[in-house]
Amino acid sequence: MTQKVLLKLSHISKRYKTETALKDISMALHEGEILGFLGPSGAGKTTAIKIITGQLRQTTGEAKLLDTDSANIDASIYEKIGVVADNSGIYEKIPVWQNLSIFAKIWNVPKERITEVLQQVGLYEYRKKYAGKLSKGQMQRLVLARAVLHKPRILFLDEPTSGLDPATAVSIHRMLLDLKKDGMSIFLTTHNMEEAEKLCDNVALLFHGEIVEYGPPQEICLKYNRNKQYSVRLENQEQITFAQTSENITKIAELMQENRIQSIHSCEPTLEDVFLQVTGTSLQS
């Protein structure tokens, strides 16, 4: 069954006076899908989110969000989508619960939902604590809790785990996968390729405002797996990498027959390697 398209970008470009932020971007986000925009800082990821969510106007092209042209988006669209910007703030001088109860009032969400979301992000026990006293990771979870409070159909996340410790990042990943399971579509920007590989159904590699590669992470990686190699660890702890030649295949078969292999892995490139191959630049730059 074909999934419903919730977001469609057709030939979107954004030009500023002296630079071009986005060039001819086309892609679609389906229901229940996580789509990642992967690229280094300044690649145009945040600009893309701002255009889609109506915070910025594109120079050319068409963006359709939930069947509404982004040029005609008004405030009511935010009742159906959730936005977490790279620097989304919280009201630090009020408690965690009140931070959500005010937004619950805006979205007409029952109070029970606040409890549910706070439990989901692991902040229920901190509900009476002033938001400014939370750790950075807890603040980010509160921002996420606020964004999903009204059960949006699409969640836009701009670098949701940037600057967070690995444990918090993992808990956020878990949360995003749970949300996906509940049918929410997620548009995610990141420069963390592991995050993209782990979470995304499709990724768009963005470089200087252009999509240089698009598709499921694994397919992209396999597409660029041109020099097939296998990493073998022998019983004597020796680590050998074999290129895929008929001679090496025989060698590996022999080692297996002699039961000398402790572990064997194929060495397909990561998204980071693909990005480097395609653009000549690292994602972390």
Binding site: T53, Q55, A75, S76, I77, Y78, E79, V83, A85, N87, S88, G89, I90, Y91, E92, F103, I106, W107, V143, R146
Partner: peptide, 11 residues
């Protein structure tokens, strides 16, 4: 404190 954008993207 970056709360204005959060409020303005909440409908």
């Amino acid at each position: 404190k970056h709360t204005l954008r959060a409020l303005m993207t909440s409908s």
